[in-house]
């Protein structure tokens, strides 16, 4: 988005400066010039980045066609007579499953936490909690990845996994064998990772619900619980949805932790205790052996899918959060 606006807006002020149409002093001209150069540079970098990624991805889309989305195979062929097969289906589904689990955790645990911070904590603790949560949101994902790999994986492999696999009637969901690195674990780690940013935004959204609405609800004889469920959450829901989308955007783009705890496996078995791969994680793990091969365009193509998905996520969330601001203020 910013790409378009800067390229469009840059030419006209330049002609203004040259044409001296505005009553501008020479110093004003200089500062405009500096700013324009900076923004033009930015536009150039952005355009170069987006342009080259798409350009390098084109061969993969052209070769694989729709198969790139529907195929779960990822075979780089060295025999010219056998075509290579690149399909992103596994990664797309892996991304959906792990993000889905993560967002579920974030929304349920995060909304509860945000409500508790806003309505239960005394104001002094509230500030402390908010600051701590914002600090947690800044922890680099590799730390979560290591935590997941070293601490949670063994626990999953020997305790949680066997237990879940043993629940009768849930084979379709969990499978029958327990592994350490799996969708469920990755989803949990991802959930823990996006939880702080969800709570941070969710808290602001809930805070923006007008006190007058809460009082209106209570003054009608509603209990605190009814006020939360029937007044606060419905009023905040658009913004909470926006916070969720924002968190989801982060979840989808998450690379390092995912390549560590998901096991980097391509399969069409999507039971939650099975290993898998995500779009971003796959790019990271495949890169080493891909260089110079015909895998490169396919990895770029995964990058394009990621860009489109996260761009639309952030567009949607921005819209929702803005709509919330208008709706919540009376």
């Amino acid at each position: 988005m910013s790409l378009n606006t800067s390229t469009v807006s840059s030419p006209s002020p330049v002609t203004n400066v040259e044409g001296r149409k505005r009553p501008s002093t020479s110093s004003r001209g200089a500062y405009e010039y500096v700013l324009l150069t900076a923004s033009a540079l930015f536009a150039l970098i952005a355009a170069y980045f987006v342009g080259t990624v798409i350009w390098r991805a084109v061969p993969a889309f052209r070769e694989q066609g729709f198969g790139f989305f529907s195929n779960a195979m990822w075979n780089s062929s060295f025999d010219p007579t056998v075509p290579s097969q690149f399909g992103s289906l596994s990664m797309i589904i892996g991304t959906l499953i792990t993000s889905g689990i993560a967002i579920l955790i974030a929304v349920i645990v995060g909304t509860g936490t945000a409500l508790a911070i806003t309505f239960l904590l005394p104001s002094r603790l509230r500030t402390i909690a908010a600051t701590l949560i914002e600090l947690l949101a800044a922890v680099p994902s590799v730390v979560y990845g290591v935590w997941g790999l070293i601490i949670l994986t063994p626990w999953f492999q020997y305790t949680v996994g066997p237990w879940l696999a043993g629940i009768p009637g849930f084979d379709w969901l969990f499978g029958t064998t327990a592994g350490g690195q799996c969708y469920l674990l990755a989803g949990l780690v991802l959930g823990a990772m996006i939880l702080p940013s969800y709570v941070a935004i969710g808290r602001e959204v809930i805070n923006s619900v007008s006190k007058e609405l809460i009082e209106a609800s209570l003054s009608l004889g509603a209990t605190q619980w009814q006020t939360l469920w029937k007044t606060v959450i419905p009023t905040a829901r658009i913004g909470l949805f926006g916070a969720g989308t924002l968190a989801l955007g982060r979840a989808i783009g998450e690379t390092v932790a995912m390549s560590m705890v998901l096991g980097s496996a391509l399969s069409t078995n999507y039971q939650l205790l099975k290993p898998g791969a995500t779009l971003a994680g796959w790019i990271a793990t495949q890169w080493g052996e891909a260089q110079g091969s015909n895998q490169v365009p396919a990895l770029f193509a995964l990058g394009v899918i990621l860009m489109v998905v996260s761009l639309s996520m952030s567009l949607i969330s921005n819209r929702l959060v803005a709509r919330q601001r208008r709706a919540a203020t009376l």
Partner: peptide, 13 residues
């Protein structure tokens, strides 16, 4: 019951 300074109908209802 109570009526407030500014009209405060529930916006989602």
């Amino acid at each position: 019951g109570m009526v407030f300074q500014r009209p405060n109908p529930f916006p989602t209802m």
